[in-house]
Every structure is written in C-alpha cells, then in structure tokens.
C-alpha cells in the first residue's frame, strides 16, 4: 500500500503547470506568513516566555521560512506568472531576512529591539497576506500588474 502511495505520488502533476505553481506559491506564502505571525506573537509576549523557548520558536520559524522559500524558488513559474513569481520571491526573501534579524535579536537577548521588530513583522505579514489574496484570485486577474 505504501509502495502504491509512493508510485501514485510520482504521478502527481509536475511543474511548470499553472495551477501547480499557484498551489506551490500559496503553500510557501502560507508557511512563511505563519512563521512571521508566530515570531511576531512570541516577541509581543516575550516576557511570558523562557529564553530558550523564545529562541527555539525564532530559530524554527526562520528554518521553516527558509525551507518554504527555497522550495518555491526551485519551481520554474509558467510564462504568464513570471511577474507574479518575482513579486512573491521578493516578498518571501524580505520576510526570511526579517526573521533572521529577529532570531539574531533573540539570541542576543536584545529586548530593546523587539518592539520595532514586531512592527516590521506585522507589516511583512500584511504584505504577504495581500499577495496571497491576489494569487488566490488568479487566474481571473492574471493580466493585472
């Protein structure tokens, strides 16, 4: 049964396929967005968390965002989605870099930087959310810039 599952998985639609790219993009944006929200939440309530706990949340969020971002960047977008793909990649890279900043601050126990990081994480989360909504609305608005 497991063998059949693996074989069937291999038969799943490959990329570049328009719908498949869209699904991959939504998944990656969702994963990175979740990482951003989790770190934002953890930093907002940092006084209620133990140091190692906060550090683990930050490290794991950064790892998860990195994995999601790398996965999508390995997928070649179909021609009509090239512009969208650049927007998504750029947003994911920015989010990943912000999560790295957050992790550095947490490891250094630089709590003075947390308030600013929370604001930036919130903005990044909102940006990812807007992009996610646009991708979700595709392919009807594919012609939009």
């Amino acid at each position: 049964m497991v063998l059949v599952a693996i074989i069937l998985s291999a038969c799943a639609p490959g990329t570049p396929d328009e719908d498949s790219w869209r699904v991959d993009a939504l998944r990656s944006i969702g994963d990175v967005s979740s990482s951003v929200s989790s770190v934002q939440l953890a930093l907002q309530h940092h006084d209620r968390l133990f140091g190692p706990y906060l550090q683990t949340v930050a490290v794991q969020a950064e790892d998860a965002a990195g994995t999601a971002s790398t996965k999508l960047s390995a997928v070649q977008p179909p021609e009509p989605y090239q512009g969208r793909s650049d927007t998504v990649t750029s947003a994911l890279d920015d989010a990943e870099s912000l999560l790295t900043d957050a992790r550095i601050a947490v490891v250094r126990r630089d709590s003075a930087a947390y308030a600013d990081l929370v604001r930036r994480l919130k903005r990044t989360g909102d940006r990812l959310s807007r992009i996610e909504d646009r991708i979700r609305a595709l392919p009807d608005d594919r012609s939009r810039p």
């Binding site: 979740s34 929200s37 989790s38 939440l41 209620r48 949340v57 969020a61 998860a64 989360g125 959310s129």
Partner: peptide
C-alpha cells in the same frame, strides 16, 4: 483562538505551547 485570527498554521511544538504562555505566563508554560 490564538492563531486563527492571524491566518497562521501550526507546524512546530513551540507554536503549540504559545497560547498557554500568552494566557498563563511562565508558570503555565512550565
């Protein structure tokens, strides 16, 4: 209650404990 308003998914054990920390602080988290 904690993650759904943010449209965030939960993928790590650290995230699972966050609602307890938010509600009850360090004692609850411990």
């Amino acid at each position: 209650v904690v993650f759904n308003p943010l449209s965030a998914s939960v993928d790590t054990l650290g995230q699972v404990g966050l609602p307890v920390a938010i509600a009850l602080g360090k004692i609850g988290l411990a």
